[in-house]
Design a protein around this nucleic acid. Structure first.
Lengths: 205, 205
DNA sequence: TAGATTGTTAATCGATTAACAATC
DNA sequence: TAGATTGTTAATCGATTAACAATC
Protein backbone atom coordinates (compact mmCIF):
# COMPACT_ATOMS: atom_id res chain seq x y z
CA UNK A 1 0.00 0.00 0.00
CA UNK A 2 1.74 3.17 -1.20
CA UNK A 3 1.04 6.53 0.44
CA UNK A 4 0.98 9.40 -2.05
CA UNK A 5 0.14 11.96 0.69
CA UNK A 6 -3.43 11.48 1.72
CA UNK A 7 -5.42 14.56 2.65
CA UNK A 8 -7.20 14.91 5.95
CA UNK A 9 -10.52 15.15 4.11
CA UNK A 10 -9.99 11.71 2.62
CA UNK A 11 -9.05 10.18 5.96
CA UNK A 12 -12.17 11.64 7.58
CA UNK A 13 -14.35 9.99 4.96
CA UNK A 14 -12.89 6.50 5.34
CA UNK A 15 -14.67 5.80 8.65
CA UNK A 16 -17.89 7.04 7.07
CA UNK A 17 -17.49 4.49 4.29
CA UNK A 18 -16.63 1.82 6.82
CA UNK A 19 -19.65 2.52 8.96
CA UNK A 20 -22.03 2.31 6.01
CA UNK A 21 -20.34 -0.74 4.50
CA UNK A 22 -20.66 -2.49 7.85
CA UNK A 23 -24.38 -1.82 7.77
CA UNK A 24 -24.59 -3.22 4.23
CA UNK A 25 -22.64 -6.24 5.39
CA UNK A 26 -25.11 -6.78 8.22
CA UNK A 27 -27.86 -6.74 5.59
CA UNK A 28 -25.98 -9.33 3.54
CA UNK A 29 -25.46 -7.00 0.60
CA UNK A 30 -22.76 -8.48 -1.67
CA UNK A 31 -21.63 -5.61 -3.85
CA UNK A 32 -22.10 -1.87 -3.97
CA UNK A 33 -21.25 0.74 -6.62
CA UNK A 34 -19.74 4.16 -6.02
CA UNK A 35 -23.02 5.57 -7.25
CA UNK A 36 -24.99 3.72 -4.57
CA UNK A 37 -22.51 4.73 -1.89
CA UNK A 38 -22.69 8.33 -3.04
CA UNK A 39 -26.46 8.25 -2.94
CA UNK A 40 -26.51 6.87 0.61
CA UNK A 41 -23.77 9.08 2.01
CA UNK A 42 -24.44 12.26 0.08
CA UNK A 43 -21.10 12.24 -1.66
CA UNK A 44 -19.95 12.46 -5.25
CA UNK A 45 -19.32 8.96 -6.70
CA UNK A 46 -16.14 10.15 -8.41
CA UNK A 47 -14.85 11.33 -5.07
CA UNK A 48 -15.52 7.97 -3.48
CA UNK A 49 -13.74 6.11 -6.28
CA UNK A 50 -10.81 8.49 -6.07
CA UNK A 51 -10.60 8.19 -2.27
CA UNK A 52 -10.45 4.42 -2.49
CA UNK A 53 -8.09 4.40 -5.45
CA UNK A 54 -5.44 6.16 -3.37
CA UNK A 55 -4.99 2.88 -1.52
CA UNK A 56 -5.39 0.30 -4.25
CA UNK A 57 -7.76 -1.15 -6.83
CA UNK A 58 -10.58 -2.50 -4.69
CA UNK A 59 -13.42 -2.57 -7.22
CA UNK A 60 -14.27 -4.40 -10.41
CA UNK A 61 -15.18 -2.54 -13.56
CA UNK A 62 -18.79 -3.11 -14.53
CA UNK A 63 -19.58 -4.65 -11.13
CA UNK A 64 -18.68 -2.33 -8.26
CA UNK A 65 -17.10 -3.10 -4.91
CA UNK A 66 -17.43 -6.36 -3.00
CA UNK A 67 -18.73 -5.22 0.40
CA UNK A 68 -16.92 -7.69 2.65
CA UNK A 69 -13.66 -7.20 0.81
CA UNK A 70 -13.89 -3.42 0.95
CA UNK A 71 -14.65 -3.52 4.67
CA UNK A 72 -11.45 -5.48 5.27
CA UNK A 73 -9.44 -3.14 3.07
CA UNK A 74 -10.65 0.02 4.80
CA UNK A 75 -10.10 -1.53 8.21
CA UNK A 76 -6.56 -2.28 7.20
CA UNK A 77 -6.01 1.26 5.88
CA UNK A 78 -7.25 2.67 9.18
CA UNK A 79 -5.02 0.21 11.01
CA UNK A 80 -8.07 -1.32 12.60
CA UNK A 81 -6.93 -4.78 11.48
CA UNK A 82 -4.73 -4.96 14.56
CA UNK A 83 -5.50 -4.15 18.20
CA UNK A 84 -5.61 -0.40 18.95
CA UNK A 85 -5.65 0.36 22.67
CA UNK A 86 -7.12 3.61 23.95
CA UNK A 87 -7.12 5.28 27.33
CA UNK A 88 -9.45 7.86 28.76
CA UNK A 89 -8.55 10.68 31.13
CA UNK A 90 -11.43 12.18 33.07
CA UNK A 91 -14.09 10.22 34.89
CA UNK A 92 -16.76 12.92 35.01
CA UNK A 93 -20.10 12.76 33.24
CA UNK A 94 -18.51 12.84 29.80
CA UNK A 95 -15.82 10.33 30.66
CA UNK A 96 -18.51 8.07 32.01
CA UNK A 97 -20.43 8.29 28.74
CA UNK A 98 -17.35 7.70 26.62
CA UNK A 99 -16.31 4.67 28.65
CA UNK A 100 -19.46 3.01 27.33
CA UNK A 101 -18.40 3.38 23.70
CA UNK A 102 -16.46 0.12 23.54
CA UNK A 103 -19.52 -1.61 22.14
CA UNK A 104 -19.51 0.74 19.14
CA UNK A 105 -15.78 0.88 18.64
CA UNK A 106 -15.46 -2.86 18.00
CA UNK A 107 -13.12 -3.41 15.06
CA UNK A 108 -10.14 -4.05 17.33
CA UNK A 109 -10.29 -0.67 19.02
CA UNK A 110 -10.85 -0.61 22.75
CA UNK A 111 -10.76 1.73 25.71
CA UNK A 112 -8.75 -0.26 28.24
CA UNK A 113 -7.82 2.24 30.98
CA UNK A 114 -9.38 5.19 32.74
CA UNK A 115 -7.60 7.87 34.74
CA UNK A 116 -8.66 10.73 36.95
CA UNK A 117 -6.78 13.28 39.02
CA UNK A 118 -9.34 13.21 41.81
CA UNK A 119 -8.18 10.86 44.62
CA UNK A 120 -11.84 10.38 45.60
CA UNK A 121 -12.53 8.77 42.23
CA UNK A 122 -9.44 6.60 42.03
CA UNK A 123 -10.25 2.96 42.72
CA UNK A 124 -13.90 3.26 41.70
CA UNK A 125 -15.14 1.35 38.70
CA UNK A 126 -16.87 2.59 35.61
CA UNK A 127 -17.74 0.31 32.71
CA UNK A 128 -15.71 -2.52 34.25
CA UNK A 129 -12.55 -0.44 34.45
CA UNK A 130 -10.99 0.73 37.67
CA UNK A 131 -10.14 4.44 37.74
CA UNK A 132 -6.40 4.92 38.09
CA UNK A 133 -4.40 7.91 39.32
CA UNK A 134 -2.56 10.01 36.74
CA UNK A 135 0.75 8.93 38.27
CA UNK A 136 0.21 5.49 36.79
CA UNK A 137 -0.44 6.79 33.29
CA UNK A 138 3.04 6.57 31.80
CA UNK A 139 3.63 3.05 33.04
CA UNK A 140 0.22 1.83 31.90
CA UNK A 141 0.72 3.26 28.41
CA UNK A 142 3.94 1.31 28.11
CA UNK A 143 2.71 -1.92 29.65
CA UNK A 144 -0.54 -2.05 27.74
CA UNK A 145 0.71 -0.57 24.47
CA UNK A 146 -1.77 2.29 24.44
CA UNK A 147 -1.66 4.44 21.30
CA UNK A 148 -4.54 6.88 21.68
CA UNK A 149 -5.69 9.07 24.57
CA UNK A 150 -9.08 10.66 25.05
CA UNK A 151 -9.17 13.86 27.08
CA UNK A 152 -12.40 14.48 28.97
CA UNK A 153 -11.19 16.83 31.68
CA UNK A 154 -11.89 20.53 32.30
CA UNK A 155 -10.15 23.03 30.02
CA UNK A 156 -7.70 24.20 32.67
CA UNK A 157 -6.43 20.66 33.27
CA UNK A 158 -6.24 19.62 29.63
CA UNK A 159 -2.78 20.91 28.67
CA UNK A 160 -1.13 19.24 31.65
CA UNK A 161 -2.86 15.96 30.80
CA UNK A 162 -1.65 16.32 27.22
CA UNK A 163 1.90 16.57 28.43
CA UNK A 164 1.49 13.38 30.44
CA UNK A 165 0.14 11.67 27.34
CA UNK A 166 2.83 12.96 25.02
CA UNK A 167 5.60 12.04 27.43
CA UNK A 168 4.12 8.58 27.77
CA UNK A 169 4.36 8.19 23.99
CA UNK A 170 0.74 8.36 22.87
CA UNK A 171 0.46 9.12 19.13
CA UNK A 172 -3.11 10.39 18.87
CA UNK A 173 -5.37 12.45 21.11
CA UNK A 174 -9.10 13.01 20.96
CA UNK A 175 -9.76 16.23 22.83
CA UNK A 176 -13.15 17.04 24.34
CA UNK A 177 -11.83 19.89 26.47
CA UNK A 178 -12.75 23.38 25.24
CA UNK A 179 -9.20 24.55 24.70
CA UNK A 180 -6.46 24.55 22.10
CA UNK A 181 -3.87 21.93 22.89
CA UNK A 182 -0.18 22.36 22.19
CA UNK A 183 1.51 19.19 21.03
CA UNK A 184 4.72 18.26 19.22
CA UNK A 185 4.20 17.87 15.50
CA UNK A 186 4.38 14.07 15.60
CA UNK A 187 1.28 13.84 17.80
CA UNK A 188 -2.11 14.08 16.13
CA UNK A 189 -4.98 15.86 17.88
CA UNK A 190 -8.63 15.72 16.88
CA UNK A 191 -10.92 18.20 18.58
CA UNK A 192 -14.41 17.22 19.62
CA UNK A 193 -15.59 20.11 21.72
CA UNK A 194 -19.38 20.02 21.89
CA UNK A 195 -19.72 23.77 22.47
CA UNK A 196 -17.69 24.45 19.34
CA UNK A 197 -20.05 22.34 17.25
CA UNK A 198 -23.12 23.99 18.70
CA UNK A 199 -21.70 27.47 18.22
CA UNK A 200 -20.90 26.87 14.57
CA UNK A 201 -24.34 25.34 14.07
CA UNK A 202 -25.87 28.57 15.35
CA UNK A 203 -24.41 30.43 12.36
CA UNK A 204 -26.83 28.65 10.05
CA UNK A 205 -29.99 29.57 11.95
CA UNK B 1 -23.38 42.57 7.43
CA UNK B 2 -23.27 41.30 3.84
CA UNK B 3 -22.94 37.58 3.13
CA UNK B 4 -20.67 36.84 0.15
CA UNK B 5 -21.05 33.05 0.62
CA UNK B 6 -19.06 31.99 3.60
CA UNK B 7 -17.38 28.60 3.44
CA UNK B 8 -17.92 25.94 6.03
CA UNK B 9 -14.23 26.08 6.93
CA UNK B 10 -14.55 29.73 7.88
CA UNK B 11 -17.65 29.12 9.99
CA UNK B 12 -15.90 26.30 11.85
CA UNK B 13 -13.04 28.63 12.76
CA UNK B 14 -15.21 31.41 14.17
CA UNK B 15 -16.02 29.55 17.41
CA UNK B 16 -12.32 28.79 17.78
CA UNK B 17 -11.54 32.50 17.58
CA UNK B 18 -14.37 33.25 20.00
CA UNK B 19 -13.17 30.72 22.55
CA UNK B 20 -9.64 32.08 22.54
CA UNK B 21 -10.75 35.71 22.55
CA UNK B 22 -12.92 34.98 25.56
CA UNK B 23 -9.89 33.64 27.36
CA UNK B 24 -7.93 36.78 26.45
CA UNK B 25 -10.84 38.86 27.69
CA UNK B 26 -10.77 37.02 31.01
CA UNK B 27 -7.09 37.91 31.24
CA UNK B 28 -7.91 41.57 30.55
CA UNK B 29 -5.99 41.66 27.30
CA UNK B 30 -7.05 44.76 25.37
CA UNK B 31 -5.91 44.17 21.81
CA UNK B 32 -4.59 41.26 19.79
CA UNK B 33 -3.02 41.03 16.34
CA UNK B 34 -3.73 38.42 13.69
CA UNK B 35 -0.15 37.31 14.18
CA UNK B 36 -0.69 36.66 17.89
CA UNK B 37 -3.95 34.85 17.21
CA UNK B 38 -2.27 32.74 14.55
CA UNK B 39 0.52 31.87 16.93
CA UNK B 40 -1.90 30.78 19.66
CA UNK B 41 -4.29 28.90 17.43
CA UNK B 42 -1.87 27.47 14.92
CA UNK B 43 -3.38 29.31 11.98
CA UNK B 44 -2.04 31.55 9.27
CA UNK B 45 -2.48 35.24 10.20
CA UNK B 46 -3.61 36.10 6.67
CA UNK B 47 -6.31 33.50 6.96
CA UNK B 48 -7.57 34.96 10.22
CA UNK B 49 -7.67 38.47 8.76
CA UNK B 50 -9.47 37.20 5.70
CA UNK B 51 -11.99 35.21 7.75
CA UNK B 52 -12.88 38.27 9.81
CA UNK B 53 -12.89 40.60 6.82
CA UNK B 54 -15.76 38.63 5.28
CA UNK B 55 -17.97 40.14 7.94
CA UNK B 56 -16.64 43.67 8.28
CA UNK B 57 -13.64 45.77 9.22
CA UNK B 58 -13.08 44.86 12.83
CA UNK B 59 -9.43 45.76 13.26
CA UNK B 60 -7.30 48.89 13.17
CA UNK B 61 -4.27 49.13 10.93
CA UNK B 62 -1.08 49.32 12.95
CA UNK B 63 -2.89 48.28 16.15
CA UNK B 64 -4.73 44.97 15.75
CA UNK B 65 -8.13 43.92 17.03
CA UNK B 66 -9.80 45.20 20.18
CA UNK B 67 -10.57 41.98 22.08
CA UNK B 68 -13.90 42.96 23.66
CA UNK B 69 -15.17 44.44 20.43
CA UNK B 70 -14.18 41.41 18.37
CA UNK B 71 -15.85 39.08 20.86
CA UNK B 72 -19.12 40.97 20.43
CA UNK B 73 -18.79 40.97 16.66
CA UNK B 74 -18.15 37.23 16.41
CA UNK B 75 -20.99 36.50 18.81
CA UNK B 76 -23.25 38.51 16.58
CA UNK B 77 -22.04 36.72 13.43
CA UNK B 78 -22.73 33.37 15.09
CA UNK B 79 -26.15 34.69 16.18
CA UNK B 80 -25.12 34.22 19.78
CA UNK B 81 -26.12 37.79 20.54
CA UNK B 82 -29.70 36.59 20.97
CA UNK B 83 -31.12 33.63 22.88
CA UNK B 84 -30.60 30.26 21.10
CA UNK B 85 -32.62 27.45 22.62
CA UNK B 86 -31.50 23.87 22.26
CA UNK B 87 -33.16 20.56 23.04
CA UNK B 88 -31.64 17.19 23.65
CA UNK B 89 -33.09 13.82 22.68
CA UNK B 90 -31.72 10.83 24.55
CA UNK B 91 -31.23 10.61 28.29
CA UNK B 92 -28.64 7.84 28.34
CA UNK B 93 -25.05 8.25 29.51
CA UNK B 94 -24.17 10.60 26.70
CA UNK B 95 -27.34 12.65 27.03
CA UNK B 96 -26.63 12.96 30.71
CA UNK B 97 -23.14 14.28 30.01
CA UNK B 98 -24.36 16.73 27.39
CA UNK B 99 -27.07 18.08 29.64
CA UNK B 100 -24.28 19.40 31.83
CA UNK B 101 -22.82 21.55 29.06
CA UNK B 102 -24.97 24.59 29.75
CA UNK B 103 -22.21 26.03 31.89
CA UNK B 104 -19.85 26.03 28.91
CA UNK B 105 -22.35 27.12 26.31
CA UNK B 106 -23.11 30.44 28.02
CA UNK B 107 -23.25 33.15 25.37
CA UNK B 108 -27.03 32.97 25.15
CA UNK B 109 -27.14 29.34 24.12
CA UNK B 110 -28.94 26.94 26.39
CA UNK B 111 -30.25 23.39 26.51
CA UNK B 112 -33.76 23.87 27.81
CA UNK B 113 -35.53 20.54 27.21
CA UNK B 114 -34.70 16.85 27.31
CA UNK B 115 -36.65 14.03 25.69
CA UNK B 116 -36.49 10.27 25.79
CA UNK B 117 -38.58 7.53 24.22
CA UNK B 118 -38.33 5.29 27.28
CA UNK B 119 -41.46 5.69 29.47
CA UNK B 120 -39.39 4.61 32.46
CA UNK B 121 -37.20 7.69 32.09
CA UNK B 122 -39.94 10.20 31.40
CA UNK B 123 -40.59 12.38 34.42
CA UNK B 124 -37.15 11.92 35.90
CA UNK B 125 -34.84 14.88 36.21
CA UNK B 126 -31.34 15.37 34.89
CA UNK B 127 -29.46 18.65 35.25
CA UNK B 128 -32.61 20.36 36.54
CA UNK B 129 -34.67 19.41 33.49
CA UNK B 130 -37.52 16.94 33.54
CA UNK B 131 -37.33 14.27 30.85
CA UNK B 132 -40.29 14.58 28.50
CA UNK B 133 -41.84 12.02 26.17
CA UNK B 134 -41.20 12.39 22.42
CA UNK B 135 -44.89 13.07 21.90
CA UNK B 136 -44.40 16.47 23.49
CA UNK B 137 -41.48 17.40 21.26
CA UNK B 138 -43.29 19.29 18.51
CA UNK B 139 -45.32 21.37 20.91
CA UNK B 140 -42.32 22.20 23.09
CA UNK B 141 -40.26 23.29 20.09
CA UNK B 142 -42.99 25.74 19.15
CA UNK B 143 -43.75 27.00 22.64
CA UNK B 144 -40.14 27.48 23.67
CA UNK B 145 -38.79 28.59 20.30
CA UNK B 146 -36.20 25.84 20.06
CA UNK B 147 -33.87 26.07 17.06
CA UNK B 148 -31.33 23.32 17.54
CA UNK B 149 -31.69 19.65 18.45
CA UNK B 150 -29.01 17.34 19.81
CA UNK B 151 -29.40 13.65 19.01
CA UNK B 152 -27.94 11.29 21.59
CA UNK B 153 -29.95 8.15 20.89
CA UNK B 154 -28.91 4.78 19.43
CA UNK B 155 -28.27 4.63 15.68
CA UNK B 156 -31.46 2.74 14.91
CA UNK B 157 -33.62 5.37 16.58
CA UNK B 158 -31.83 8.40 15.16
CA UNK B 159 -33.57 8.81 11.80
CA UNK B 160 -37.01 8.70 13.38
CA UNK B 161 -35.97 11.31 15.94
CA UNK B 162 -34.65 13.47 13.10
CA UNK B 163 -38.03 13.38 11.45
CA UNK B 164 -39.69 14.52 14.65
CA UNK B 165 -37.19 17.37 14.87
CA UNK B 166 -37.52 18.40 11.24
CA UNK B 167 -41.30 18.32 11.40
CA UNK B 168 -41.19 20.41 14.53
CA UNK B 169 -39.19 23.02 12.63
CA UNK B 170 -35.73 22.73 14.11
CA UNK B 171 -33.06 24.31 11.85
CA UNK B 172 -29.91 22.65 13.11
CA UNK B 173 -29.04 19.21 14.41
CA UNK B 174 -25.98 17.99 16.26
CA UNK B 175 -25.83 14.24 15.71
CA UNK B 176 -23.98 11.92 18.06
CA UNK B 177 -25.58 8.78 16.70
CA UNK B 178 -23.31 6.62 14.52
CA UNK B 179 -25.43 6.87 11.39
CA UNK B 180 -25.95 9.09 8.37
CA UNK B 181 -29.02 11.23 8.80
CA UNK B 182 -31.32 12.18 5.95
CA UNK B 183 -32.66 15.70 6.22
CA UNK B 184 -34.22 18.25 3.88
CA UNK B 185 -31.68 20.66 2.46
CA UNK B 186 -32.77 23.56 4.67
CA UNK B 187 -31.78 21.68 7.83
CA UNK B 188 -28.15 21.70 8.85
CA UNK B 189 -26.59 18.61 10.44
CA UNK B 190 -23.22 18.46 12.19
CA UNK B 191 -21.94 15.01 12.98
CA UNK B 192 -20.14 14.31 16.23
CA UNK B 193 -19.81 10.56 16.32
CA UNK B 194 -17.05 9.64 18.75
CA UNK B 195 -16.25 6.34 17.01
CA UNK B 196 -15.76 8.17 13.73
CA UNK B 197 -13.20 10.47 15.33
CA UNK B 198 -11.34 7.62 16.94
CA UNK B 199 -11.30 5.58 13.76
CA UNK B 200 -9.87 8.42 11.69
CA UNK B 201 -7.30 9.06 14.42
CA UNK B 202 -6.15 5.45 14.07
CA UNK B 203 -5.02 6.17 10.50
CA UNK B 204 -2.19 8.35 11.80
CA UNK B 205 -0.71 5.78 14.16
C1' DT C 1 8.79 59.69 11.58
C1' DA C 2 9.47 54.54 11.76
C1' DG C 3 7.36 50.33 12.87
C1' DA C 4 3.35 47.60 13.03
C1' DT C 5 -0.66 45.76 11.30
C1' DT C 6 -4.88 45.69 8.74
C1' DG C 7 -7.84 44.72 4.57
C1' DT C 8 -7.53 43.05 0.08
C1' DT C 9 -5.76 41.56 -4.34
C1' DA C 10 -3.12 38.28 -6.74
C1' DA C 11 -0.68 33.87 -6.71
C1' DT C 12 -0.54 29.37 -5.17
C1' DC C 13 -2.00 25.33 -3.70
C1' DG C 14 -5.15 21.56 -3.09
C1' DA C 15 -9.54 19.27 -3.38
C1' DT C 16 -13.64 18.11 -6.01
C1' DT C 17 -15.91 16.91 -10.12
C1' DA C 18 -16.40 15.63 -15.02
C1' DA C 19 -15.19 12.80 -18.56
C1' DC C 20 -13.78 8.66 -20.65
C1' DA C 21 -11.00 4.55 -21.97
C1' DA C 22 -10.71 0.05 -20.10
C1' DT C 23 -13.20 -3.88 -18.95
C1' DC C 24 -16.45 -6.79 -16.43
C1' DT D 1 -23.10 -7.74 -27.54
C1' DA D 2 -24.94 -3.80 -24.68
C1' DG D 3 -24.97 -1.76 -20.27
C1' DA D 4 -22.62 -0.77 -16.13
C1' DT D 5 -18.95 0.69 -13.53
C1' DT D 6 -14.19 1.27 -12.29
C1' DG D 7 -9.65 3.79 -12.14
C1' DT D 8 -7.55 7.83 -13.69
C1' DT D 9 -6.60 12.02 -16.20
C1' DA D 10 -7.92 16.60 -17.11
C1' DA D 11 -10.83 20.54 -15.91
C1' DT D 12 -12.92 23.10 -12.49
C1' DC D 13 -13.62 24.97 -8.40
C1' DG D 14 -12.48 26.76 -3.94
C1' DA D 15 -9.50 27.65 -0.10
C1' DT D 16 -5.06 29.15 1.68
C1' DT D 17 -1.15 32.01 1.60
C1' DA D 18 1.87 35.81 0.06
C1' DA D 19 2.41 40.39 -0.84
C1' DC D 20 1.60 45.12 -0.33
C1' DA D 21 -0.73 49.70 -0.26
C1' DA D 22 -3.16 52.10 3.25
C1' DT D 23 -2.90 53.85 7.71
C1' DC D 24 -2.65 53.84 12.73
Amino acid sequence: MKVPKISEAVVKRLPVYLRYLNSLKAMNVRTVSSHQLGEALDLNPAQIRKDLAYFGEFGRKGIGYEVNYLVEKIKSILKLDRQVNVLLVGAGHLGHAISNYNAYLKDNMKIISIFDADPMKVGKKIANLTIQPLEELAQTVKEKDIRIGIIAVPADAAQSVVEHLVDAGVAGILNFAPTNLRVPEWVRVHDADVTMELHSLAYYL
